[in-house]
Design a protein around this nucleic acid. Structure first.
Lengths: 135, 135
DNA sequence: TTCCATGCAAACTTTTTGCATTCAT
DNA sequence: ATGAATGCAAAAAGTTTGCATGGAA
């Protein structure tokens, strides 16, 4: 969403959406939040939930958990590897380093969750965009 | 997609989709592949591309790069942390370990990409699902 | 000859947007 | 009084599916 504005007013709906997110650790979807708030705001619309989630995300009060892009992406390079995701242009490139086992070991020590594998995405600026910005 | 079948026949379209994916490192979207193949198969449909990508993914010949779910998820816990994603039920929980700096340092050494931050998702089975399966 | 794969279009899922109204400032 | 936020519904964006036809085994 393109929000050029940063002169926000208070709204009960937005306050409650943030409150709900602060008090849960399940990383909810928009509909889950919508359902939670339906009893308090019987006329609430999903659009309002999405709009407020965007605003809260823009304000840095919440995180939107997403991949680098809205499109699914596909890769025939199936052996485990990590990705470099450019925040300027959305490009995804491979990073071939092997830190796999160390990380699983560290994580396995502190959680009862059964860890089978992991994925690391590095975010930043690719060389092409870096050069463009330096011109 | 629900593909109960694993008796696949050869198809020129699927062969070429795999070929394209093997020969690029840009992690393309479905439409990008579709556009690439339009000259070779003028009647190609996007549906065919998606169907074949699902089949190739099911066969383990390619990877679909996606989050744990099709829904965006939101989090008010904005300080850096990693996620445990259950492959059985799709739940996302936090893992609070601090291996942040080590990983960035390792990666920075081997790429000119400007790394600002990273994200780690651990995949496996959560405790609830583990218990359900043991019953 | 069987039935998997295709093209086409329609349906579906998730998210965004336009518009008139309501509400915070 | 101003214009941001809302509810509602329609549209958009991305992906999947039904169906008749074509093609591999």
């Amino acid at each position: 969403m393109q929000l050029s504005n940063n002169n926000y007013r208070k709204s009960k709906q937005r306050t409650q959406i943030l409150e709900i997110l602060k008090n849960t650790n399940i990383h909810p979807t928009a509909i889950w939040i919508y359902d939670k708030l339906k009893s308090e705001f019987p006329n609430l619309s999903l659009g309002t939930v999405y709009r407020n989630l965007s605003i809260l995300n823009e304000q840095g009060l919440i995180l939107k958990i997403k991949n680098g892009s809205t499109f699914d992406r596909f890769d025939a390079h199936i052996s485990p590897h990590y990705h470099l995701i450019c925040e300027e242009c959305g490009s995804i490139t491979d990073l071939d380093i092997d830190i796999n086992d160390i990380i699983n070991e560290i994580a396995i020590k502190v959680t009862p969750f059964i860890i089978k594998h992991h994925k690391i995405d590095f975010f930043g600026t690719c060389q092409i965009c870096k050069n463009k910005k330096n011109l």
